[in-house]
């Protein structure tokens, strides 16, 4: 079993053994870990579908997706620990910048000290002064 960290989602998955450096997942595990769904037209999340290239650059078959190949194809960084048991599917600088340049403040959900989740978008209707701090 391996753990995949993507944005604020943490998912334990059972990779499918294949040769090479990839990390092959069932369509169901890919969906759980990243929100991307394998469809006839490609790998889709929200309104976006990414076609899967054919031949030696193919990162998906009918029943498995190499999430490393897919993530690199999207231009996002991937890191893992030395035992390849914990993986981070990161987010590219361009994607971060585009989100900030769009009209909408990127949403997030974080707990308070009591563990109660707060979502930024719950504060719609108010002016929000979002400010960072730390004990250190």
């Amino acid at each position: 079993m391996v753990t995949i960290l993507h944005e604020q989602i943490e998912t334990d998955v059972g990779p499918i053994p294949r040769s090479g450096d990839g990390l092959w997942l069932s369509p169901k595990d890919l969906m759980r870990a990243t929100g991307f769904e394998l469809k006839p037209e490609g790998l889709c999340r929200d309104a976006i579908c990414v076609p899967v290239p054919k031949g030696r650059h193919a990162f998906a078959t009918d029943d498995a997706i190499d999430v490393v190949g897919f993530w690199h194809h999207l231009g996002h960084p991937v890191v893992h620990d030395e035992t390849r048991s914990v993986w981070v599917l990161g987010t590219a600088a361009d994607s971060r910048r585009q989100a900030l340049e769009s009209a909408e403040a990127p949403d997030f959900t974080l707990p308070d000290l009591d563990g109660r989740p707060h979502r930024l978008s719950d504060y719609r209707g108010r002016k929000v002064f979002l400010v960072s701090w730390a004990s250190w």
């Binding site: 974080l110 707060h118 930024l120 504060y123 108010r126 002016k127 929000v128 002064f129 979002l130 400010v131 960072s132 701090w133 730390a134 004990s135 250190w136």
Partner: peptide, 8 residues
């Protein structure tokens, strides 16, 4: 509202 986030 202030919305404080502890990077911590």
């Amino acid at each position: 509202t202030v919305l404080a986030v502890a990077l911590d």
